[in-house]
Design a protein around this nucleic acid. Sequence first.
DNA 1: TACCTATATAGGAGCACACCTATACAGGAC
DNA 2: GTCCTGTATAGGTGTGCTCCTATATAGGTA
Lengths: 181, 181
Amino acid sequence: MSLKIALLGILDLAPMTGYDLKKSIEASVAHFWSADQSQIYRTLAVLVSDGLAEVEVVPQQGRPDRREHHITPAGRGALNDWLRSPLEPETPHDAFLMRLFFVGTLGVPATRALLRTRRNQATALLAALRGVAEQEQSPREPDDRAPDDLGRRLRFATLRNGILHAEAELAWLVETKEALG
Amino acid sequence: MSLKIALLGILDLAPMTGYDLKKSIEASVAHFWSADQSQIYRTLAVLVSDGLAEVEVVPQQGRPDRREHHITPAGRGALNDWLRSPLEPETPHDAFLMRLFFVGTLGVPATRALLRTRRNQATALLAALRGVAEQEQSPREPDDRAPDDLGRRLRFATLRNGILHAEAELAWLVETKEALG
DNA sequence: TACCTATATAGGAGCACACCTATACAGGAC
DNA sequence: GTCCTGTATAGGTGTGCTCCTATATAGGTA
């Protein structure tokens, strides 16, 4: 369901090809959503056949035609319906915690190694998120200034969410390391 | 993949029926993993056909026979292999953040409502996790004392992880509410 | 010359999972 | 007497996703 929504949401900001969408996802929502390229094309085809998006073919020379996808009024309706639908608590699936839950049988050194790897990953993630956040916050040219509208604040808030959780993960790692003695 | 591991990990602690596994998952790993009952039975059948678990039929009167699943040496091997395999950074899928990312077009009141719902969910989750943690920590009868071994500490650590993240989420919600002015 | 990257598309195969449904009996609640 | 809960099993159907592969051309790098 949600990849459809992600695509509709991005297409609502600007019309795009599947290729553009892939890059746009990597640049903007990668910290809370990921998408396989082939899945994007498939889902895009479903959106079109459901009347939620329309294709405009833009010929190019030396390259495949751009198949630019535009959101339709029906697509905007579907997006808004989803945004207004009740927020279900999500069913968690955390492979790292499952590993930790069962890794005890392998002994203390293996456990420490697992926690170390996790710390490296969390540190790298935090640095990446802080890098993006700084760019977002950096002062802009006066004539280039994007409006500090609700949407922009909310997009920044999703970044802050990732940062706070990465910090919490690192704090937990310190605590857990100590608890192992 | 990971449900197989969850089942093997739990069966490594004690042999169980599918029904027992469902309850065990709800009682112990629900804060980071969820499993559908029909999926448990299907996955259990795969484990048996792969030689990772064996069934012992225990007849009962008035109830269906217990089909008790025991982990085999091959199953223990597969579990350990997975535990030792490299920890891949997970690809995130957070439907709430996606909602927040796009909800700006609906306006400030809808945004506030979304954040309020999220706060209620996070508060409930935190209370539930703290409840479980207290039970785990509560002093036991001297002759009933479970060994405070590595496994037990790690299982407690996964709970602490959930608690710290729930707290981080609430802190983020306060910050975000203020940022909306 | 040969490879690598960027642009742009999309199918094949298969996994893991969720939602819904069905079967069967015991014991307690109302 | 009927309904609900607990114990115990399992299939049907469909979704959403990943991994791998294929096609085609331009331009830069070794």
